[in-house]
Simulated assay, not measured.
Amino acid sequence: MSEKVRENIPETLQNFDQLPDSASVRLPTVRGLFACSSASVWRGVKAGRIPKPRKLSPRTTCWNVGELRKALNQSAHQ
Rank of each mutant, 00 (worst) to 15 (best):
R54P: 10
R6C: 14
R6V: 14
K4C: 10
L33A: 05
E67Y: 05
L19W: 10
L68Y: 09
L13P: 09
E7W: 12
K55A: 06
Q14R: 13
A23E: 07
L27F: 13
P53D: 04
N73C: 15
V30Q: 04
I50D: 00
R69D: 01
L68N: 03
A71Y: 03
C36T: 09
P10I: 03
V41A: 08
I50K: 08
E67L: 02
G48T: 08
S38K: 15
K70P: 01
S2K: 00
G44E: 06
A76N: 15
L33F: 01
A47W: 12
G32K: 09
E7M: 14
P28T: 02
K55S: 06
N73Y: 14
M1C: 13
K46S: 14
T61D: 03
G44K: 09
R6D: 06
D21S: 07
C62V: 12
L68Q: 00
E3A: 13
S37K: 09
L13V: 12
S75K: 04
N73P: 05
K4I: 13
F34G: 08
I50F: 08
K46W: 02
P28E: 01
L27T: 05
R49L: 09
L56H: 12
W42Q: 00
L56R: 14
G32N: 05
T12W: 04
F16P: 03
N73S: 15
R6K: 13
E7R: 07
N15A: 06
G32L: 03
E67T: 02
E3C: 15
C36G: 03
L33R: 11
T29E: 04
N8K: 06
V65A: 05
N8D: 05
A23P: 11
R49E: 11
R26T: 09
L33P: 03
N8M: 07
W63I: 04
E11Y: 13
K55P: 00
V25I: 08
F34Y: 09
I9F: 02
R49K: 11
S2Y: 12
W42I: 08
E67C: 00
L33M: 15
V45E: 11
T29D: 11
L68M: 02
T61I: 14
N64I: 00
M1Q: 10
R6Q: 00
S22D: 07
L27Y: 04
T61M: 07
R49T: 02
E67P: 06
C62N: 01
K4E: 08
H77P: 11
R69A: 00
T61H: 04
N15D: 15
S37R: 12
K55F: 10
L19R: 06
S38W: 02
R31L: 10
S22M: 01
A35P: 12
E11Q: 13
S57H: 09
N15W: 08
N8C: 02
G44R: 03
R69E: 08
P10C: 05
L56C: 12
N8W: 04
G44D: 06
G66P: 01
R26M: 08
G66I: 01
K70T: 03
C62G: 10
P53E: 03
C36E: 02
A35G: 14
R54G: 06
D21Q: 15
E7S: 12
R43M: 12
S40W: 10
V25A: 02
W42G: 06
V25S: 00
V45G: 06
P53F: 05
H77T: 11
R54D: 11
